[in-house]
Simulated scan of single mutants.
Amino acid sequence: MKKLHLFFFVLSISFVSLYAQNNTEETAIYYVTLKDKTHYLGTIESESTNYIVLYNASTGTRTEIPINQIQEKKIIPTKAIKNNEYWFENPNATRYLFGPSAFNLKKGEGYYQNTMLLLNSFNVGITDYFSIGGGIEFLSTFITLSQGNFNPIIYFTPKVGFSVADNIHVGGGVLLASIPQFGETSNTGLGMLYGLGTYGNLDHNVTATIGWGSVDGNSFNKPLITVSGMTRVAKKTALVTENWLIPTDSSYEPIFSYGVRFFGENIAVDLAFINNWDIAQSLLIGVPYVNFVVKF
């Protein structure tokens, strides 16, 4: 009798699970992109070998879409829909203007970043919690090549990042750089070990970072501190700020920045200004800063 009860219990659980799965599939919200780049949003009401019928509950419309015209069809989370529009994921949430957040690239994700047409870097997610990046600077490349030697500024940036609670991520990383001393045979070595914490989600967040650096093996006597933030104000627009406290012999030198980020699903462009008290004396709004990222 006990075995019989166990059999019916397992059977009932199976039916409940199957019903929940089917119900989820039926109510899943799809974002459909056609070959002509037209987009549709809704649940699939019916599907045949030639057509799907998409129902948009917000507008009450039904659209018959030829299957051979569909370029992409994907399920999207309900929270990604705002005012009957699909807000795709922020493509550059792992970084502010230059410094990182504690969010990490997912395994297999990556991006190319160009800063002021000079700094060129790549970052790739090795796991969901660990990424490796590095880059090269163009101006030093051309100068050293003109001197008959390939010795550009290069840098290496491994990082870890993971979630410890809702809206709380922590991480850390290393910045290693080699900087040529023009006219000399030796390079200057720069190293930094840092930890950081991010509060918020991919669209609205703030990050505090503390780092210990050294130049040619001589350590700074105080840590470098940064506070950065980002807030998404529209589907394709965010405000970004990144602010540094750079240690000096006696105190700290502040540098602050403010800008706008424009982005699509796989590209982001930052237009910003870098400023401090000294810069503001000559250029009130600060020094222009331009940076773009292509995600792959």
Rank of each mutant, 00 (worst) to 15 (best):
S14W: 04
Y258F: 15
E85P: 08
L54S: 02
S178P: 05
N22E: 01
N151Q: 11
I81A: 03
D278F: 08
L4K: 11
T127S: 13
P100H: 05
E47S: 14
G99K: 12
M192F: 06
Y129V: 09
Y55A: 11
L54G: 00
A102H: 04
G125R: 06
T207L: 13
D249Q: 12
A28C: 00
T185I: 12
F296K: 14
S282G: 15
F130S: 03
T198Y: 00
V233I: 15
T38E: 06
G171V: 04
F292H: 00
I210S: 13
L239G: 00
Y111Q: 03
I143C: 10
K74Y: 06
Y19R: 03
L139N: 12
T157D: 14
E184H: 15
G172L: 09
F122A: 03
E109I: 07
L176G: 00
D216R: 00
I13T: 14
I154T: 13
N123I: 06
G183H: 00
L239N: 02
V233P: 13
D278C: 11
D128Y: 06
P66A: 01
E26P: 00
I274V: 14
A165M: 10
N221T: 15
T188Q: 03
L11W: 10
K82E: 14
V215P: 11
V10Y: 10
K106Q: 10
F162D: 12
D166F: 09
N276G: 12
E45K: 14
A234S: 03
V290H: 06
A20H: 09
T141W: 14
Y40R: 05
Y31V: 00
S140G: 14
K3R: 04
L11E: 12
L105C: 11
I153E: 01
Q147L: 13
G108A: 04
V294L: 09
F88G: 15
V164W: 07
N221K: 13
K73D: 02
L41A: 03
N276D: 06
N167F: 05
F122Q: 09
H5C: 07
E137K: 08
T157V: 02
N243Y: 08
V164L: 09
S250F: 08
F138E: 01
Y86E: 07
V227W: 13
G148D: 06
I274F: 11
G211R: 01
N83Q: 09
F98C: 03
V233E: 02
F256G: 15
Q21Y: 13
F263E: 13
S12T: 06
F156Q: 05
S58M: 09
A20R: 11
T24L: 08
P152R: 03
M116W: 04
S228K: 12
F9G: 01
V260I: 08
I13E: 03
W87N: 13
G148P: 15
N90L: 01
L239A: 07
V53G: 02
K35H: 04
N104I: 05
S178C: 02
F150D: 02
Y289V: 10
P180E: 04
A177D: 05
Q71N: 15
G229R: 08
L176C: 04
T157N: 09
N167Q: 10
L97I: 11
G173A: 07
D128V: 05
T78D: 12
Y129N: 14
N151V: 01
W212D: 07
G108N: 10
T226I: 02
L245H: 10
